[in-house]
C-alpha cells in the first residue's frame, strides 16, 4: 500500500531564493524503510518535514509539486528536546500526551503508552520527571511518544544522535520491527554504517536533489565513498587501494579477506 508520494517537489524556506529541495519524486509503501543520506544541508531534514506535513504549514515557505499522504505521520526531530510537551511530570504522562490529544479512550491510551515504553526499553523510567533525564533517555522518550500515537508513516531525523551504541542498536532493531508491522519508515542519519542491516532503499540527496537511489550496496560505490558517504569499511578498502567492488560491512570484508 502506498503511504507517501512526492511528485516533483520543490521547496523554498521563507526569504530564500535557492530551494532547499528541488524536483524530488519519491514513493514509499507500507513495510518499507527508506534512508536519506547526504552531507549536512543536503535537504534530508526538509524532506522529512514535508513528509510530516510540517513544511510549509508550520515552517512557512513555498512548495511546488504535489504531496500525497495516505496515512497519519509522526516525526522525531533532530532536536528531540524541543518536542517535550512541558506539561507532564512523569515520563508516562509525557508519552501519553500525544495519544490523549488524539481523543482516544483511556484504555487505548494506556495500551499504546505501555507498549511504546516497552519497545524503547524505558519502562523503568515511567515515573521519572522528564527534566531529570539524560539526553539519550530523553531521545527514547520522544520516540516512544511518537510511536504511542501509532502513526503509519514514521519519520526519524537522526534518531540515534544522542544514544549510546547499545541504545542505537536497539533503535535500529525497532525500525525493522516497525516495518515488519507494515509501517513505512523514512529516516535521515549520519550513521551510514548502521544502514546495510536497516534500510531497504537508500536515497542520496545532494544540494536538495536526488543524486542516486538504490539498495544499501550503493553505500559501497565509488561516488558515495568519494563524497564521504560510503560505509567506513568501503571507504577503508578504497583508501587502501584495494579494487572495487568494495565490501559494505565488516562481515563482507572478512569473507572477502579469506
Amino acid at each position: 500500500m502506498r503511504i507517501l508520494a512526492l511528485e516533483e517537489v520543490t521547496f523554498w524556506y521563507p526569504a530564500t531564493a535557492t530551494p532547499a529541495l528541488e524536483s524530488v519524486s519519491l514513493e514509499v509503501g507500507s513495510g518499507e524503510v527508506v534512508a536519506l543520506v547526504g552531507r549536512g544541508g543536503a535537504g534530508a531534514s526538509t524532506l522529512l518535514l514535508i513528509a510530516a506535513g510540517l513544511a510549509p504549514r508550520v515552517t512557512g515557505g513555498r512548495l511546488a509539486g504535489s504531496v500525497t499522504r495516505g496515512a497519519r505521520a509522526g516525526i522525531v526531530l533532530p532536536t528531540p528536546w524541543t518536542q517535550l510537551s512541558g506539561m507532564a511530570f512523569t515520563v508516562w504522562d509525557e508519552v501519553a500526551f500525544g495519544p490523549a490529544n488524539l481523543g482516544w479512550p483511556e484504555h487505548e491510551i494506556t495500551r499504546h503508552v505501555d507498549r511504546a515504553l516497552e519497545r524503547l526499553e524505558i519502562t523503568p523510567l515511567a515515573s521519572r520527571d522528564p527534566v531529570t533525564l539524560s539526553g539519550g533517555e530523553l531521545q527514547r522518550v520522544i520516540v516512544a511518544g511518537i510511536l504511542a500515537m501509532d502513526p503509519d508513516l514514521v519519520l526519524l531525523d537522526e534518531p540515534t544522535a544522542e544514544l549510546d551504541p547499545e541504545g542505537a542498536r536497539a533503535v535500529w532493531r525497532l525500525v525493522r520491527s516497525l516495518a515488519g508491522e507494515g509501517k513505512a519508515v523514512i529516516l535521515a542519519t549520519s550513521d551510514v554504517d548502521a544502514l546495510p542491516g536497516v534500510a531497504d532503499r537508500i536515497i542520496w540527496l545532494d544540494q536538495g536533489s536526488v543524486r542516486a537511489l538504490g539498495e544499501p550496496s550503493l553505500l559501497a560505490e565509488d561516488a558515495m565513498c568519494e563524497a564521504g558517504l560510503g560505509t567506513t569499511v568501503a571507504g577503508l578498502w578504497r583508501a587502501a587501494g584495494l579494487g572495487a567492488p568494495y565490501p559494505l560491512t565488516v562481515v563482507d570484508a572478512a569473507q572477502r579477506w579469506r
Binding site: 551504541p165 554504517d193 569499511v233 577503508l236 565488516v250 562481515v251 570484508a253 572478512a254
Partner: peptide
Amino acid sequence: LGLVPPPVAALSVAL
C-alpha cells in the same frame, strides 16, 4: 559497558 567496537576497530580484529 554498553559499548560496541567502532567499524575500523571491528575490521582490524575481524581481519
